[in-house]
Amino acid sequence: MPIADKKLGEGTYAVVYLGHLKADPKRLVAIKKMKVNTAEWRDGLTMDAIREVKYLQELSHPNIIALHAVFSSKNQNLNLVLEYLPLGDLEMLIKDVDGIRYGTAEVKAWMGMLGRAVWFCHENFILHRDIKPNNLFIAADGEVKLADFGLARSFADPYRIMSHQVITRWYRPPELLLGARHYAGTVDVWSMGTVFAELILRRPFLAGQTDVEQLELICQWIGTPVEENWPGVSKLADYIRFDKGNIQPIRGKEFFLSTFGTAGPVGVDLLMSMLALDPRKRSTSRQVLEHKWWTSEPRPTAKEHLPKKGGGPEKMGEDLKRKGGEIPASRGDSVARRLDFSAMR
């Protein structure tokens, strides 16, 4: 039985406590107490809570956050007892440009762990649908753990529609922006690709303020989706006709090499396969792990040698209380308005 010790953070959606096991006080856990949202959900639990419990208790993998137990407290709150991951998340490491330096071997190690987590979800027919750096926690031993299954769902049966309003905007694939209601695991692979790009660039790769701007950024950096490069794209629900004169053909390898050269030609090849516009041409999570980049030089850094930053318990509380699909307010607000000189170099 876990005992809650102190409050780590509180959001509109959940309160997070640091706790320990009664039997073994040295084993720390994070307790995520779901708030009963009376306005939105008059009866029953929120969708996120159900999803999180449903999928996390099925998945047991070193790169996926462990759900130890679920219990309800006196006013019928739902409490999730989660693995305690004190070292913050991947976003903190990416943003700390001055404090933390890392190279291709470290990127490969982190991506490898993310790849395993996503592959394992897909292997168990679960779509995560919210992969982003601040959902990737770092365990005390350096292991990356995929968390926040509040938007997850199992693979849909044929003809069954799914929501396209999922995945945080910056990491959302073009088919969801174009309103596809039938999609597959490749949506998570696109998110992985943008995380990969962000790890290399050390800033969000495609940071659109609105859905339309996000689509424009994709057109600009990857290519404009048209019938020639994506058969059937114009049949998607929210497809916009692009100006004939304004069509950007799909970017070639030279363009990616000039931006992501540090990953090396093999790494760029993998990144391009993850960021393919047409989801049918995109790698599946299995194909990602079968890519030769993992076994080529340099070897991924051992997890105990990966750079760490003491995120502390507060950061975990901060991350866990968020609702799925949100961009932290401090981050997205000023990105577009601020002039970015780093991109000009």
Binding site: A156, P158, Y159, E175, A180, R181, H182, Y183, A184, G185, T186, V187, W230, P231, G232, V233, K235, L236, A237, D278, P279, R280, R282, T284
Partner: peptide, 9 residues
């Protein structure tokens, strides 16, 4: 195409 183009596999 409405199903296939979205990447449903």
């Amino acid at each position: 195409p409405g199903i296939v183009a979205g990447g449903y596999d």
